[in-house]
Design a binder for these strands. Structure first.
Lengths: 334, 334
DNA sequence: GTGAAAGCGCTAACAA
DNA sequence: TTGTTAGCGCTTTCAC
């Protein structure tokens, strides 16, 4: 068996209480004994049993995080930022992947809560079907929703203003002269998809632009961008611009346009959303709406910590304004 | 306080032992009592305390995983595959990101071991500097290295044969007539970088190709691909082909070549490694060496389970043969 | 400042 | 088949 605090105490000639006090960094121990305990611990190769500690204290110094799909490159960027923040306060992050499935998402949320995480950060899969999972989780642990949220906000949320973000993209292509603007995004399961769609419609309406242009809703994947491109190529008239619900879709679209000898930005303008790493590596480099990952992460941890202190706080919603990054897919920086 | 097994037992009118037996699915309980316990648990909203259970059993039904950098899209693909496998046996995966830093990696490994994970899956950051972390971890829990390994194999390993993989790429461009072949990859910290470099040199030598072509070693990132491209463009003679250490580098390289009006594959052939999602979306679509993620994951779990049964098994090394995926960056399928 | 002792919630002997 | 009970390793009163 592994060496326990009992062994350390014995070797140091003190009680387990004192050993515990030293090992957890309590003030009220004489330097002499503290030194003895530390020496004994080192000599024996003592390793703290976090499970036992967690059982006793009811805290784990651990935060759980669930993302809809780790393969979508936008999520890893948020995860990295959150992890850096958590590190500052010495907490560990356990990350889980819901694989785009609300059932798996529920399992993961329970698994994390069962392990007594001190808090849960979640990007919900679905605006409607993830709701029950959130409601259940909120009763067990502090929860913060990031990026996406579920209906009626059972928990705090931080994200960018998606509606505004897509608005920026539309305004941009309108300013460049586009009239017939198509929208390619994911079906309206998630709040992101919903808000981005809403933003598109709002600005199109505001400018009195034709509303019979394609609105193609599939998934947030590049393959969907490809099929959407093919679909648009098969129909007349071809749009002046395509605003996409995220970068992956836009990159898929660009690939298909390239193959069909449609020139971007000469024949059609294209915009994305997120500003993932590959956006600037696309051909042509992609104009997109940037999500400020560091800021999202910072706010997320702030909300979580506030909620850990007071569970009964009113639910907070923090919407950060995104910014447009102009690249060559709409004619380049100007 | 949350509802405990004691509350359930009381409500069901049985002992905690019986309640425990029912709740953990033991056979030896009469159906009548089992039903009563389940009903009581549901009525009270009982949730299993995994921490207490873990302390008692010494098992957590949890596997930890550490990747060097979750932002590198190759790792999420492995993570997803591992997660699917683990799900089959009802275990949960806790994922950690080492942020390319061996110190953080050590912290994560300890945090996971402290929480008594039943096993650890790790893609080590460095072939040399991650070694101590591995050695320590191996003493605490079953460990499997995936993709990369550290010197002297303190733990099982499964990955593709990197040397062979790069060999496939070189053979391919040689068959297409390339003589002057450049190599752009990451500096030789990780075993992947080392093996891929070795594979390149071996095949170049075997074919008696010129050995004064560029060998540029930086990082596994697209930015490095860009700078490497610029470096090669500034020198004479320009190579016939560039074999890259991974897809990201190749994609960065393609971007820079495009900007400089170097045509791929007409002016130069380019190959990658990994076959990440964006490889086929690159312009032109990237010829690359595919790592069979599902197979890696399956083998990884098999090794882990074997080691959980017998810690004293001799160290296993499983090298899977990778395959070449030919796309347009070397002239397309043929 | 230090130690004795009571659990945190659960499981697994052991008895009945 | 069921119940009683002794811990898993740790932290934290509560006495001294």
């Amino acid at each position: 068996m592994a060496v326990t605090i009992r062994d350390v105490a014995e070797r140091a000639g003190v009680s387990v209480a004192t050993a515990s006090r030293v090992l957890t960094g309590s003030r009220n121990v004489s330097p002499v004994l503290a030194e003895r305990v530390n020496t004994a611990a080192r000599a024996l190769g003592y390793r703290h049993n976090a499970v036992a500690s967690a059982l006793r204290r009811g805290r784990t110094n651990t935060v759980g995080m669930i993302v809809p799909e780790i393969g979508n490159p936008f999520f890893p960027s948020i995860v990295e930022a959150v992890e850096r923040r958590l590190q500052e306060s010495g907490r560990d992050l356990f990350l889980c992947d819901a694989q785009q499935d609300v059932t798996i998402e529920r399992h993961r949320a329970r698994a994390l809560a069962d392990r007594q995480v001190d808090g849960l950060i979640i990007v919900p899969v679905s605006a409607t079907e993830s709701r029950a999972t959130l409601v259940e989780a909120v009763q067990r642990t502090p929860v913060v929703q990031v990026d996406r949220y579920v209906e009626e906000y059972p928990a705090d949320w931080v994200g960018v203003n998606d509606e505004l973000g897509v608005g920026l993209a539309v305004e941009h292509v309108v300013a460049l002269g586009a009239r017939r603007i198509a929208f390619v995004s994911a079906s309206l399961d998630s709040s992101s998809a919903q808000q981005r769609y809403a933003g598109f419609e709002r600005v199109v309406k505001r400018h009195g632009l034709p509303s019979d242009t394609p609105r193609l809703l599939g998934t947030f994947r590049a393959e969907w961008g490809r099929s959407a491109a093919l679909q648009m190529l098969a129909e007349e008239p071809f749009p002046d611009a395509v605003v996409c619900g995220n970068d992956e879709i836009a990159i898929g679209l660009l690939g298909e346009f390239r193959r069909s000898r449609i020139r971007v930005p000469e024949d059609v303008l294209v915009t994305g959303f997120d500003d993932i790493r590959f956006a600037q590596l696309a051909d042509p480099p992609l104009t997109t709406v940037r999500q400020p990952g560091e800021q999202l992460a910072a706010e997320c941890i702030r909300l979580l910590d506030a909620r850990m202190i007071d569970r009964d706080l009113p639910v907070q919603r923090v919407a950060i304004a995104p910014s447009l990054v102009v690249r060559e897919s709409t004619g380049g920086s100007s």
